[in-house]
Design a protein around this nucleic acid. Structure first.
Lengths: 135, 135
DNA sequence: TTTACAAAACGTAATCATTACGATACAATA
DNA sequence: TATTGTATCGTAATGATTACGTTTTGTAAA
């Protein structure tokens, strides 16, 4: 996912273009790692004094729902990152800086038999620790 | 983990025996699935009118830290269940009732090479959906 | 079996992330 | 450029969790 694709998706779904939305997308494209609503807010405040929580949270969830962002819980706070758009994979996540590394192995392939009588809706496989620069 | 083991562990670590702690442990032994602080509070209130948040949360975190309970985030709320004490495994978790089914496959075995330069501290593999009675 | 003391619980207020909402501003398009 | 519905603002409300001074209680020594 890049800035243009995200803006096109918004337009295609009937959502309006705003500078703040572009700025939000740009923030995540530039960061390319897991960040909190607070991180985003602080970044936005530098350019938009008095920006509302409403704008931040509403758009975060809109983007998450549209697949522009993906989200996970990290030390009790919701974190968001730009959606990776190639094939399905999982992440190693740095507990300190939120940076990720792709893991190209999905455990679901091996367990469908074990869960035959359950209705599987979703799964999460994440590895946590410290990246080379934070260790 | 059963009630007696949990009480012994508390004693061994120098924590005092109280009826409320036994009651809490008993709640989780009996439920044997993921439950929230609120679920526990409601159950305790029936027997201990006016029980404090402090008691609930302090003990939940104490138990979590001592390995009497294990915890996970489920729809934005922390959930706790009695710690499974046999060999390492993961869980399918019912989004509706919190019931779990063990998954005897750990993806970590296959990915250590991929993450050589990272310091791995923890990992999470959970499958979400609905159990036979909730589907 | 009292007494002393540290730990636990109470009662309640504070915190923190998040959500909600009426009023106002703005993007899209006719 | 007028209209209309969406986005944002400013701020209050919510809900889970944490904090804290005071009181109660479990534990072990006297």
């Amino acid at each position: 996912m890049n800035t243009q694709e995200a803006l096109d998706l918004l337009k295609q779904k009937g959502y309006k273009y705003t500078e703040k939305r572009e700025h939000m997308i740009h923030f995540f494209v530039h960061e390319n790692r897991y960040r909190t609503a607070k991180d985003l807010l602080e970044n936005m405040e530098a350019d938009y004094d008095g920006i509302s929580f409403d704008t931040i949270y509403r758009n975060l969830h809109l983007f998450d729902q549209l697949g522009i962002l993906e989200s996970t819980e990290l030390n009790g706070e919701k974190h968001f990152r730009l959606k990776c758009d190639h094939h399905h994979h999982h992440h190693f996540i740095c507990k300190n800086c939120g940076v990720t590394k792709e893991i190209h192995h999905c455990p679901m392939e091996q367990i469908n038999e074990e869960l035959k009588q359950f209705m599987i809706e979703d799964h999460k496989f994440e590895v946590y620790g410290f990246c080379p620069s934070c260790r």
